[in-house]
Simulated assay, not measured.
Amino acid sequence: MSDFPAETDVAIIGAGPAGLFAAFQCAMLRLRCVLIDVLPEVGGQCAALYPEKPIYDIPACPAVEGAELIANLERQIAPFNIPRLLKHRVEGLSGQRGDFTLTTDQGSSLHAKAVIIAAGAGAFGPNRPPLDGLGAYEDSGAVQYYVRRKADFKNKRIVIAGGGDSALDWALSLKDAAAKLYLVHRRDRFRGAPESLRQLDEAVAAGQIEKVVPYQLHGLRGADGALSGVDVIDMDGTTRTLDADVLLPFFGLATDLGPVARWGMDTQRSTIPVSPSNCETSLAGVFAIGDVATYPGKLKLILQGFSEAAMAAHAIHPIIYPEQALHFEYSTSKGVPAA
């Protein structure tokens, strides 16, 4: 884009919740910043994977959908007119603390004095079940890995497979819209918040959800991409067919740091170890926050990414203004700086 700057104080890679809040924190400290993301819109997984999924652990928000959370973060940074470079994947990072050069797959380059990596799960995609003929049902939408519009599932016979938070949350969220909802898992134990487990028990008792345990996915029935049933099998080899219009397998995301892994910093199983005091990586001047960052006691919660964003921004300030002491002030005292 023509008005995209050639240089900035802080390059923020990733425009999900942590990246957006990092932009706000940098702007509050009068640090110029740029948001860069490979996706065509800001929001990361919240926008791309679950815009209508309620999030319950954001402070002061009893429940907020992913898209609404991103819209609120956008409003928060709107006064600062922060430049963003979307549909660009950062391929290269060279230089040193105070003088980095970033290059993208679209041929753009940016000079920055510090870098914040807020890349979430990195390059992410679903773990797909090994079922014959899966591709045709994916193409038709009969098998989906993300729920973008709950209205699309109204009066559908839905099979949800998985035993973690995503499977539980979507089962509870879709139970009122579905004509029938099955929850398939290989054992009668689910990994979820105690309140979600309590709600699941209530929904099962009320006949809103049928637990199919201990079973695993075994096959798909239908023709020309139209799903009519899902075969499941138990540990003894007994099979059962569930009448279904839609299959939603939630087996987690396959993540990949991509080019980030080649930038010379320490990595650990698709995450980046950081100092818990300031979120700096092993490469001086480069910081990591959100799901991509790891340290002892790390919790993969959006709220922790927000805290890390603030710590990283404050740690970067002396890199940009080495002669200027930073006196911490609450936002209630200093307000929002003029653009």
Results as ranks from 00 to 15, higher is better:
M1L: 07
D3N: 15
F4C: 10
D9A: 13
I12E: 04
G14S: 01
G16F: 08
G16M: 11
P17K: 00
P17F: 00
G19L: 01
L20P: 06
A22L: 02
A22I: 01
A23F: 02
Q25A: 06
C26L: 07
R30G: 09
C33I: 01
C33H: 00
C33M: 01
V34F: 15
V38E: 14
G44V: 03
G44I: 02
E52M: 00
E52P: 00
K53D: 00
Y56T: 13
P59E: 11
C61Y: 15
C61G: 01
P62G: 11
V64G: 00
G66H: 00
G66I: 00
I70S: 00
N72H: 10
Q76L: 05
A78C: 07
N81G: 14
K87T: 07
K87D: 05
S94G: 08
G95L: 07
G98S: 14
G98W: 11
T103I: 05
D105I: 12
D105F: 12
Q106R: 15
G107C: 15
V115H: 11
I116Q: 08
I116P: 05
A119G: 15
A119T: 13
G120S: 02
A121P: 04
G125R: 11
P126L: 07
P130S: 13
P130V: 08
L134C: 04
Y137N: 04
D139V: 05
S140G: 06
A142L: 09
K150R: 11
D152T: 00
F153I: 04
F153P: 02
K154H: 12
A161I: 10
A161D: 14
A161S: 15
G164C: 03
S166G: 12
S166Q: 15
L168C: 11
S173H: 05
K175T: 03
A177M: 13
A179Q: 13
L183F: 04
R186A: 08
D188R: 14
D188A: 12
R198D: 14
G207F: 04
E210R: 15
V212G: 07
G222F: 02
G222A: 05
G225A: 08
A226I: 04
L227R: 08
S228D: 06
D234S: 06
D236H: 00
T238N: 08
T239K: 06
R240C: 02
L242H: 10
D245G: 12
P249M: 10
G252Q: 00
L253V: 03
A254H: 15
T255V: 11
L257A: 10
G264M: 08
T267A: 03
Q268Y: 10
T271N: 09
S277F: 12
E280L: 03
S282H: 06
G290T: 13
P296L: 05
K298F: 05
K300R: 13
I302H: 05
L303G: 10
Q304C: 09
F306S: 01
S307N: 06
A310W: 11
A313V: 09
P318R: 04
P318F: 02
E323R: 05
E323I: 02
A325M: 12
L326P: 06
H327F: 08
E329C: 13
S333H: 11
G335K: 09
